[in-house]
Design a protein around this nucleic acid. Structure first.
Length: 840
DNA sequence: GAGGTGGCGACCGAG
DNA sequence: TCGCCACCTC
């Protein structure tokens, strides 16, 4: 690679505008940013800084202020602009700051134009933040950075420009999971595969997995292709790709896979990008999967100025193909790489850091970093037990109200849950309390049915060949175009080789349809023609309003008397409103296919509720971590599917959660939780034990009953993954000498005895909460007990009188394993777990 | 073709 | 328990 880096001749500022502008021309894509032309990324200050940089290459002007506040390691990472650099950045060590300052540094030294920097993140949120922060250093110059974005958005950008080279047209549509599933369903039906045994969703996951690993249909190992539907997996993948091409569509995985193919098969295109990307920066490198890694490596071969920032302790996306190996392998991939470790934590207090650090040492296979802080030790991390998930929500609600009374802002409080189903309890509670909250990354706005319907209308208008969109709304609202009519359109489309809309148009002109169907279809096709014609004249949000109105879609929900209809209408209004800022319809559609988050009530003072996954990269003064129970966190499925690796990933997730907190981290667990509508006794998470004792304080929920109660709680004894300090009440002092605690201890001992005292065995059983039938079977995962739940057959029989903490007295009417159906005197019939009740 | 119902799996997670 | 989907009836 003879690419002469800018440094080789500092007097020659990068002048690529000659190829820059044609390269970035909207090429018929009205959605492409116009800033590339109107604003080549130069501002007066920038020019001045560059001039000075040229005059004095060693000590450039403007390289002062923003570098001043950096510590020596950060500074090294920022200033080593040339050659490969790996920044191992622990939580809260100023990782984003390094990345953004580095970009600002490159810009102000005049080493590259903004358009010559490739900066990749995983989430839109991260990209947005990075853009903001760079903007605050370098000003509007940041607008000239078209290559700052997520892997996916940059992939789209590349593909749009060279679509024809990979067999697509530049207006291709991007399918989301929903479209993907529907398409796969059609394929499964065509192959006469039983969808019960081989669900489309499973196939979608399988294909995604292959794509994450950078495998095209030809590259899938034969054995793997055969695992789905008696050897049909490989063929289905091939068929699926063919269908996508025919539809001029790609799925998320293709955005990378096809980009890789584009670069591999077209050396001239690759060379162009090599020339273009003088500097490459990658955020969260530990989360890259194989496809992303291959993509990056191809591009980085050019300038070799690649800077990856990551933290192996925060790798939490193994399930979607992330390879921690990528980060571990960096030095051999890029010989001579500079490795910078950032270990000075600026975020959290000593106790929080201590607890998190001690937890993460339980993982093997880390690069190993020791975070330290020079700040105060602050408040200890609290661990609080609650009777059930409702009490947990109540307790957290009370603590938040207390904080609020002390003058703390709500937006500095976050509740981080493991799984989104845990959110509802908090939402319910906060609604009752009148406490403002916002759910981040919750039920996605653009995935709601009404929004997807509306978008489907717009997609058909924007690209008439979007068959999937057309299919979605032919008969929404119901207009009498059912399966039979659709099949006719399909048949004609296939024989004539036309998109569905065109096929429909021809059928309308013919005599083949029933008169009624023909009339309806004619109207529909006519509507689309009219709307398409209006698209040129009207702003997209006005068009959307007209479409929703004239299609009868709005009316459909107005007539709907169900509870959620009003909310859906609101969502539609919100959708129309959110379209305004865009240049045109196509620009909007492009945006939403990639950006699935609608930041609703941003800016308002509200408690943040989100999953641990989406909390990565954020920080809050106070962080609540509810649901630390075996099965919930660590998540049972992660353990079942990934074994030890899954457990370690869960632990990293716990680490991420704790390290989000600046001043207060508050962990909760509930003794009882309703899962699949069944009350289950829960066992405190093993992660509680792994928090260093000196950094933790155990408190009792103000709600009263603590976490004891009539169930086998003590997690070590019964669950046997090692001794737990929770087994010994005195370790934790007075809180655990409560009657509830004592009861729990007794229950622990008795049930451990009943289960044969297999406390040090090597079994992992599927949690009874996920199916009692196989609770008796064991499973060895690398010789370590990953999880064990379920229990001995019930000590109760039909007709026994029992007492339940929550439901009171009742009679056992049925027994199934350790699950009882009890007719309670007051609460009615409930299914409960045996250990949850006691003899009266 | 529309509307109702019963059975079953889900509740892990980004773009 | 909840929501979805397949299947059934009118």
């Amino acid at each position: 690679m003879s690419a002469s880096g800018p440094l080789s001749d500092p007097r020659k500022p990068p002048r690529d505008d000659a190829f820059d502008i044609p390269f970035d021309l909207p090429d018929g894509m009205p959605g492409a940013p116009s800033t590339d032309i109107s604003n080549p990324g130069i501002r007066p200050g920038g020019i001045a800084a560059r001039a000075q940089a040229l005059a004095n290459p060693g000590r450039p002007a403007g390289a002062g202020a923003y570098i001043e506040g950096l510590n020596p390691e950060q500074r090294a990472a920022v200033e080593a602009t040339e050659g490969p650099v790996l920044v191992l950045a622990g939580a809260g060590t100023g990782k984003t700051r390094v990345l953004t300052t580095r970009i600002a540094h490159i810009l102000s030294l005049g080493l590259a134009w903004p358009s010559q920097i490739l900066a990749v993140t995983f989430t839109n949120k991260a990209a947005r933040e990075m853009k903001e922060r760079i903007g605050s250093i370098v000003g509007p110059e940041v607008e000239g950075m078209p290559w700052l974005g997520t892997f996916h958005s940059i992939g789209v950008r590349m593909l749009r420009r060279h679509a024809e080279l990979v067999g697509l047209k530049s207006g291709f549509t991007i399918l989301d999971t929903d479209d993907q599933i529907r398409l796969l369903k059609q394929l499964l039906q065509a192959e006469q595969i039983d969808e019960k045994r081989w669900p489309a969703r499973l196939l979608a996951n399988t294909i995604d997995g292959w794509k994450n690993r950078g495998l095209s249909p030809e590259q899938v190992p034969a054995g793997e292709g055969a695992t789905f539907a008696h050897g049909k997996g490989g063929k289905l993948y091939r068929d699926y790709q063919a269908r996508l091409k025919a539809l001029n569509a790609v799925d998320f995985g293709d955005l990378l896979l096809e980009s890789i193919r584009l670069l591999r098969e077209n050396p001239d295109v690759l060379a162009e990008y090599h020339k273009r990307f003088r500097y490459i920066l990658v955020d969260e490198y530990q989360d890259t999967n194989v496809a992303q890694y291959l993509w990056l490596r191809l591009l980085a071969q050019g300038s070799r100025n690649v800077c990856c920032v990551g933290d192996d302790d925060q790798s939490i996306y193994g399930w979607r193909g992330a390879e921690v190996d990528n980060i571990l392998r960096f030095e051999s991939d890029f010989p001579g790489a500079l490795v910078v470790r950032l270990e000075r934590n600026y975020r959290s207090t000593g106790h929080i850091l201590g607890a998190a650090a001690h937890l993460i040492t339980h993982n093997e296979g880390r690069l190993g970093k020791t975070l330290f802080s020079e700040g105060e030790s602050g408040e200890k991390v609290t661990v609080t037990g609650a009777w059930d998930s409702q009490e947990e929500a109540r307790a957290i609600g009370e603590e938040i109200e207390a904080l609020q009374r002390e003058g703390h802002g709500l937006s500095q409080v976050a509740i981080l849950v493991r799984a989104s189903f845990q959110m509802r309890e908090f939402e319910d509670r906060f609604v009752t309390l009148g406490l403002n909250y916002r759910v981040i990354g919750g039920p996605r706005f653009y995935e709601r049915a009404e929004i997807r319907d509306a978008l489907a209308y717009l997609r058909v208008i924007a690209s008439p060949s979007d068959d999937l969109a057309f299919e979605r709304i032919v008969n929404v609202p119901k207009r009498g175009l059912g399966d039979a009519a659709l099949r006719q359109i399909h048949d004609h489309a296939r024989t004539a080789g036309l998109p569905l809309v065109e096929a429909a148009r021809e059928l309308v002109a013919s005599e083949e349809l029933k008169p009624k169907v023909r009339l309806t279809l004619r109207d529909l096709v006519g509507n689309f023609d009219r709307w398409r014609e209006q698209m040129a004249r009207l702003p997209q949000h006005e068009l959307a309003e007209i479409v929703l109105d004239e299609s009868g879609y709005t009316e459909m929900w107005q007539k709907d008397r169900s509870a959620e209809a009003a909310g859906r209408l609101d969502n539609l209004k919100e959708l129309v409103r959110s379209m305004e800022p865009f240049e045109n319809l196509i620009g909007f559609l492009e945006h939403i296919s990639l950006v699935m988050d609608a930041e609703g009530a941003a800016g308002q003072d509200a408690v943040n509720i989100m999953t641990l996954h989406s909390s990565k990269g954020l920080e809050f003064d106070t962080v609540f971590l509810p649901g630390w129970e075996e099965g919930v966190f660590p998540n049972q499925r992660a353990l079942d599917e990934q074994g030890r690796a899954g457990l370690e990933e869960e632990r990293r997730l716990a680490y991420v959660g704790i390290t989000r907190a600046r001043r207060r981290a508050k962990v909760f667990f509930a003794s009882n939780r309703r899962i699949h509508g069944l009350w289950q006794s829960a066992v405190p998470s093993r992660f509680l034990d792994e928090l260093s004792e000196r950094d933790v304080e155990v408190t009792e929920s103000r709600g009263g009953s603590g976490w004891g109660g009539g169930q086998g709680g003590g997690y070590a004894g019964r669950y046997g993954y090692g001794p737990s300090r929770f087994d010994e009440a005195q370790t934790f002092g007075s809180s655990y000498s409560t009657p509830g605690w004592q009861r729990a201890q007794n229950a622990t001992r008795s049930s451990a005895a009943a289960s044969g005292g297999k406390s040090s065995g090597g079994f992992a059983e599927r949690g009874s909460r996920y199916g009692a039938s196989d609770a008796a079977r064991g499973r060895v995962i690398e010789g370590e007990l990953i999880a064990k739940s379920g229990g001995p057959p019930s000590r109760f029989g039909r007709g026994d009188r029992v007492f339940h903490q929550k439901f009171g007295y009742g009679d056992v009417v049925a027994v199934e394993g350790n699950k009882l159906t009890v007719q309670f005197d007051k609460a009615g019939e409930k299914k409960v777990v045996d250990s949850f009740v006691q003899a009266p």
